[in-house]
């Protein structure tokens, strides 16, 4: 008989584990595509972060929570969740040194102001994606951890 702890995972199911091993890299790659594609089409930082977190959650559902926590540890998650905010704020503060306002990327002396705006938005999307992935994974860890009592 199965114990109560194994109800939530598919650790003994070879079909789910094989397809998960095949699909998780593709999901992460597609999340990067959504992240980069956000300026010129559907997508963006929040969506890419959610897809990245969904890849890790799928891995956790089929290989168990402990293995996922050994790959993406709590320490890395707290680091990532603050790193994204740092990227966002740093990119926003960068135009202040060239005489612009906060988040005014056109003032950054790159090739031309349009390109500078595009790259600035991309950098901010990367920051948003990293933070959203970390916070989503943190919520998932908190919800799926068993209570002590």
């Amino acid at each position: 008989m199965m114990s109560g702890k194994e109800y939530t995972t598919f650790m003994d199911d070879i079909i789910v584990r094989t397809v998960t091993r095949l699909m998780v890299p593709l999901i992460l790659l597609w999340a990067l595509y959504v992240l980069i594609h956000g300026a010129g089409g559907p997508g963006g930082g929040f969506q890419a972060g959610c897809v990245l977190a969904a890849g890790f959650i799928l891995y956790a559902l089929s290989f168990g929570l402990e293995k996922t926590k050994s790959i993406m540890t709590i320490k890395w998650i707290s680091l990532f969740s603050s790193l994204g905010v740092l990227i966002y704020a740093g990119t926003g503060l960068l135009p202040l040194f060239f005489g612009g306002k906060y988040l005014e990327y056109g003032k950054i002396p790159l090739i031309n102001p349009i390109k500078a705006s595009e790259y600035g938005i991309e950098a901010i999307e990367i920051g948003v994606g990293i933070t959203v992935m970390a916070v989503m994974l943190s919520i998932f860890y908190d919800l799926s951890t068993e209570r002590e009592d």
Partner: peptide, 9 residues
């Protein structure tokens, strides 16, 4: 790839 496996799960 995903739909039959989700049904199975």
């Amino acid at each position: 790839l995903a739909n039959p496996v989700a049904t199975h799960a």
